[in-house]
C-alpha cells in the first residue's frame, strides 16, 4: 500500500459489559449486592479499507453495530480488539492533528449552542479549529449557498426546525474542511426535499474537497444516490463489502420479469406472480431459470413487451437481513 488509506480497519471487535437485572423491587435489591454481568458483542471481526475520496454506505438494521463502528473510527470508543487507523492516526488517542481532520455528525443536538444564534456557534468552531479567516469566510459562503443557510444564521438554534438544525449541524461540522466525514443518519426525520438537498450537498462536498465520506442511512435512496460501494453489517459482523450493483447479483437469487400481454393469461407455470394488473404481470424467477422462462413465455404467449430486471436494492437488503435472522 503506497498512500495512507483514509480508513483502515483490521479484525475490529467491541464487546460491551452490561449489568442486567430482572424487573421489580426484589431484583433491584439483589442487584445491589450481586450484579449479573453480561458481555454483549457490538462489533466482531470487521476488516475493511477505505481509500481517500470514496463515499461508502454503511448499512445494517438497528443494533447491527454501525454507530459503534463510527464511534470507534472517530475516537469516541476504545476497541476491545483489532486495529483502527484513520488517516494513519489511532483514533482513540484523539490527537489534535487527527481531530482537526475529521468530523462526526450524529443526531440533532451536537455542537450548536441552543440559546444563541447559529453564527455564534460557527464562530466558536472557527476559533477551536483554528480556521484561517479567509478560509472560514469562503467555507461559510459555500455552505450557506449550498444549504441555503443565509436566513438561518442569525436565528437562535432553539427556534429552528428539525431539518434546519440538521443543515446547520452539518455545516458547522464542515467549516474546518474535514478530510474524513462520518455521518450517522444525516437525513433521518427530514422530508423528501430536504433529504435530497442534503444528499446533493454531500456529493458536492465530496467532489469539491475530495473528502472521504462514510455514512449510515435507513433510506436506500441516500445510498443509491451517493455510494458506489457499500458495507453491510449485521449482528456486528460483515456480510458484504463491495459495489452496490454486485450486492444485488450476489444476494438476490431472483430476477423479475415484467410482461405485457395482448390478452390475459395464467402465468403461474412460468414463475411466482408478484403482481398482476390488467395487462402487465410481474414474475419472480430464479436467476438460473430466467433464460428458459423468457424463451417459453415468448413462444407460448402473445407477448407485447417483456423486460428482465433486478429486484429493487431495498428488497434485496431486506431479504438479506431477514434471512440472516432465521440463520
Amino acid at each position: 500500500m503506497t498512500a495512507v488509506a483514509a480508513v483502515n480497519v483490521v479484525h475490529l471487535r467491541k464487546v460491551y459489559r452490561v449489568y442486567e437485572r430482572e424487573a421489580g423491587l426484589g431484583a433491584a435489591l439483589r442487584a445491589l449486592f450481586q450484579r449479573q454481568m453480561q458481555e454483549i458483542v457490538g462489533v466482531d471481526d470487521l476488516t475493511f479499507t477505505i481509500e481517500p475520496g470514496e463515499i461508502i454506505g454503511f448499512l445494517g438494521p438497528n443494533g447491527a453495530g454501525k454507530t459503534t463502528t463510527l464511534k470507534m473510527l472517530a475516537g469516541l470508543l476504545y476497541p476491545s480488539a483489532g486495529e483502527v487507523r484513520v488517516l494513519g492516526y489511532i483514533p482513540w488517542r484523539r490527537e489534535r492533528a487527527f481531530l482537526r481532520q475529521i468530523a462526526l455528525v450524529m443526531g440533532q443536538r451536537q455542537q450548536l449552542i441552543w440559546d444563541i444564534p447559529v453564527i455564534d456557534s460557527f464562530e466558536l468552531n472557527r476559533a477551536i479549529y483554528r480556521i484561517p479567516p479567509a478560509q472560514y469566510r469562503r467555507m461559510l459562503d459555500e455552505l450557506a449557498d449550498l444549504l441555503e443557510l443565509a436566513p438561518l444564521l442569525h436565528k437562535p438554534v432553539r427556534n429552528l426546525s428539525l431539518g434546519e438544525r440538521m443543515k446547520c449541524e452539518i455545516a458547522g461540522s464542515l467549516l474546518h474542511r474535514p478530510q474524513v466525514l462520518f455521518l450517522d443518519e444525516p437525513t433521518i426525520g427530514l422530508d423528501i426535499v430536504m433529504q435530497r438537498r442534503i444528499r446533493d450537498f454531500i456529493r458536492e462536498y465530496n467532489r469539491r474537497t475530495g473528502a472521504t465520506v462514510l455514512l449510515t442511512s435507513h433510506y436506500m435512496a441516500d445510498v443509491e444516490a451517493l455510494c458506489r460501494r457499500v458495507i453491510l453489517i449485521h449482528h456486528g459482523t460483515m456480510l458484504f463489502d463491495g459495489d452496490l450493483t454486485r450486492l444485488v447479483e450476489r444476494f438476490s437469487p431472483y430476477k423479475t420479469i415484467v410482461v405485457r400481454l395482448e390478452e390475459p393469461a395464467d402465468l403461474r407455470p412460468y414463475g411466482e406472480v408478484l403482481s398482476q394488473s390488467e395487462d402487465q404481470i410481474t414474475l419472480r424467477v430464479p436467476k438460473s431459470a430466467v433464460a428458459r422462462a423468457t424463451a417459453r413465455l415468448l413462444t407460448d404467449l402473445p407477448v407485447l413487451d417483456l423486460s428482465v430486471e433486478d429486484p429493487p436494492i431495498e428488497t434485496v437488503i431486506e431479504q438479506i437481513f431477514t434471512q440472516e435472522e432465521v440463520v
Partner: peptide, 21 residues
C-alpha cells in the same frame, strides 16, 4: 495564541448565552 483565541470566543459565546436569562 490559539488558546487565547478560543477563550475569547468562548467568553463571547457564554456571555451571549447567559444574557438570554
Amino acid at each position: 495564541t490559539h488558546l487565547i483565541a478560543v477563550y475569547r470566543q468562548q467568553l463571547k459565546t457564554a456571555i451571549a448565552e447567559q444574557l438570554q436569562y
